[in-house]
Design a protein around this nucleic acid. Structure first.
Lengths: 215, 215
DNA sequence: TAATCGCATTTTGTATACAGAATATCAGGC
DNA sequence: GCCTGATATTCTGTATACAAAATGCGATTA
């Protein structure tokens, strides 16, 4: 019988991360502590503690005397976070060792679903995320897992990237295929390099998409 | 005229990270909110918010109904964090591009100081940290910088590692030399791999040191 | 001596109160 | 019509209050 020993701070944080993930809290949005507290049926105290934690994680921003807000979409964020995620997924691959080829089948399965034409950007985004999560799942490093989850959480609002021209999507999918081949062959080092390059190359279409949004 | 708009939460966090860095708050120590608030001359509210933030960063631990504490030294932490730092320093090196060889001189300078025999573990630890900070300073990725700083902050309590046998220290210093050669030659890819391997190899002496502490 | 119980004290977790800053509203003037 | 400024309102930041859980400690007992 697991007694619930969690404090409100953690429960609030969990709910807020969910709302950040599902888009109920949108990029650029200001977070009203009072409104959140009322919505959750708690006082502002645990809400503020949760927000302070999320802010230190980078999931939200803290602006002195203005409170907290969801970060607006920014090209800088993509430019900085994508390579970071790539490097960590590379580490995950290197740590997979001999078991790396076991990932080939599940990766190919997700990849096949990504090839379907009439998916929404959101669906593509989810599949792509699951593909990368699978690719970087073969390690026993909880810190690495936590870091990756945190960084991925920070780019959740960028799903519109997958509304880009089909040609760009095609080239990114081709890179997936190339990585799957390396994974199948157990070439961890080269697969790690490829996944980093993959993320770095994705920066350009993402920033172009953001530039298009400005209008 | 930059008006101080910072809130107490941020100021408290800054002071606490300092106390964590200089050892005034020791590994395993319980953090008494009331005592901290009194010591800082503020109420518990901003202290708790600062603690909640530090906990989400992993610099301290939150135990429900028991408050906050500085994480105890643990072999797991070393095993998980060292490769993570290595991967991120590797990314920093790859991002340095053509300017990588410029790092050779300052690295060699710090390395020379590390060769002096009668340094305290603390002095060695500081020099080693500065060596790695220098090695990974040539990039313009603020997120990478923040992640590295955070992770480095989490292994600050492990300075005793540099009280290990001279032979081990010698081999780690030799790896530094090899990396400096690669840096001089501008071989970013190989230098990145070498620095990851360097951190991975450092896991063993660190865990052995920790095992020795248990007695 | 070691373990256990009961009680006092401390400490955490949460709610609430309050001051001051930021923001919104709106009237008046250019 | 738009800017300016005064005022009202909202919201943040911080302190304080209070209940409940955890902890410490001494007495009691096996």
């Amino acid at each position: 019988m697991p007694i619930d020993r969690r404090n409100l701070r953690d429960q609030v944080r969990e709910q807020l991360t969910e709302w950040l993930a599902d888009g109920r809290l949108r990029a650029g949005q200001h977070l009203d502590e009072g409104a959140l507290a009322r919505a959750l049926g708690v006082s502002r105290t645990p809400v503020r503690e949760a927000l302070a934690g999320l802010a230190r994680e980078g999931l939200i921003e803290a602006v002195p005397r203005h409170g907290f807000q969801v970060p607006a979409l920014a090209a800088e964020t993509v430019q900085e976070l994508f390579p970071l995620i790539g490097a960590l997924e590379g580490l995950a691959i290197r740590l997979a060792g001999r078991s790396l080829p076991e990932l080939a089948a599940p990766l190919a399965e997700i990849q096949a679903r990504l090839a379907v034409a009439q998916l929404t950007p959101r669906q593509r985004w989810d599949l792509d995320r699951r593909w990368h999560e699978t690719l970087s799942s073969r390690h026993n490093n909880r810190e690495l897992a936590a870091s990756l989850e945190r960084l991925r959480g920070r780019i959740r609002h960028y799903e519109g990237l997958w509304g880009r021209p089909a040609a760009e999507q095609e080239s990114l999918r081709a890179e997936h295929d190339a990585i799957i081949v390396l994974v199948t062959e157990g070439q961890a080092e080269r697969a790690a390099e490829a996944v980093l390059a993959h993320w770095v190359r994705a920066v350009r279409p993402a920033t172009q998409w953001l530039a298009g949004l400005e209008r």
